[in-house]
Amino acid sequence: MFRPFSVARFAIALLLVSAAPAVAAGLDAAAINDVAAPPAKLPDRGQLNAFVARLEILLDRAHFSPGEIDGKLGDNAQKALRAFADANGLSFDKAVTPELWSGLTTASEGPAIVSYTIVDADVKGPFAKRIPARMESMKSLPALGYTSPREALAEKFHMSEALLQALNPGQKFDKAGETIAVANVVDAGKPPQVARVEVDKTRQALSTFDAAGKLLGFYPATVGSAEKPTPSGTLKVTAINKNPTYRYNPKYAFKGVRSKTPFTIRPGPNNPVGVVWINLSGEGYGIHGTPDPGKVSKAESHGCVRLTNWDAQRVAAGVAKGTPVAFIDSATSSATATR
């Protein structure tokens, strides 16, 4: 049955159609891979940009994590860039110098964007229909899985869903055997042993070091909150739990949680602590993943140290029981140690 299409609805539809290509204009695998030199000045914040996408991928591969790779120049990317520059005795202010760019491009090999063939494991699920906002509502779910293959694939390659979709227009990501463009960040090598971890409460970052004081990795983090600040001093790793069950203790009295009795939330990447929990010697404190990678260092935690799921896995792979974790501020940080 034909229904009249109002002028207003037509105008809105036309606006959406005309705006959609602009978001991804010039942003494809070739555009990102072909970036040969940095621009004279940094691109505008919040705008999808091929140079920024390649920059974030290079930083991730050098273990100076920009957090979620989204093709936009945000605080986390700039934080990682500054840390890389400091660690290598280079300068960074309002532009990426040729020396800094050269240091990044020579730190790893291969194109920034590669082709990936979706496999059965990527699409088989089970997927959650939705993840409730309230913790109390999560306790009844059988698992806290991904909500879609697109979310799972974006996290697998350290990307935002928006960037993954922009690189693969029209793709639904739900069929094994189809080829998509993804960030080239999968690192199968064995991580080096971490001798010490530093959590910079002012800088909102976590750094790992080897026994000689060499900086191994730098990661943006959400560190505590006014409601429940992180501790001071040095704690130690006491356990590493993969795919943890989250247990809520009502004595924590987290904002927005009304339950007066303990409850548990089953494992999964959308669990409140993500896919890994690094338990620390302080009561109730840990380093863990998150279901919201785009919010790392941009939203408060419940007193712990929150990383993206993939960064938490990198840290967990390098630490062991007894590894010291120092909580400091920027004035005493040694994160600028040489690599």
Rank of each mutant, 00 (worst) to 15 (best):
R3D: 05
F5N: 04
F10I: 01
L15Y: 04
S18D: 05
A20K: 10
P21N: 12
D28V: 10
D34I: 00
A37D: 09
L48F: 14
A50W: 13
V52L: 06
D60Y: 09
G67M: 07
K72N: 08
K79S: 15
G89K: 10
G89N: 14
D93G: 05
D93M: 03
T97P: 11
L100T: 09
T106L: 07
D120C: 00
D120P: 03
A121N: 14
K124E: 11
A128Y: 06
A128C: 02
E136G: 00
M138R: 15
K139H: 01
Y146C: 00
S148Q: 02
A154S: 13
E155V: 01
K156H: 07
S160V: 05
Q165W: 07
D174E: 14
T179Y: 09
T179V: 12
I180V: 13
V182E: 07
V185G: 13
V186T: 11
G189E: 15
K190E: 15
K190N: 12
Q193Y: 08
V197F: 06
D200G: 05
R203M: 09
G217K: 12
G224H: 13
E227R: 07
E227H: 14
P231I: 04
T234F: 06
V237Q: 03
P250I: 03
K251T: 08
Y252A: 02
R258A: 03
K260V: 01
R266M: 02
P267H: 04
P269C: 01
P269E: 03
N271G: 02
P272D: 04
P272R: 05
V273Y: 09
L280C: 01
P293W: 12
K295C: 00
S297Q: 07
W310C: 00
A316I: 03
T323W: 09
P324C: 00
A331N: 06
T338P: 02
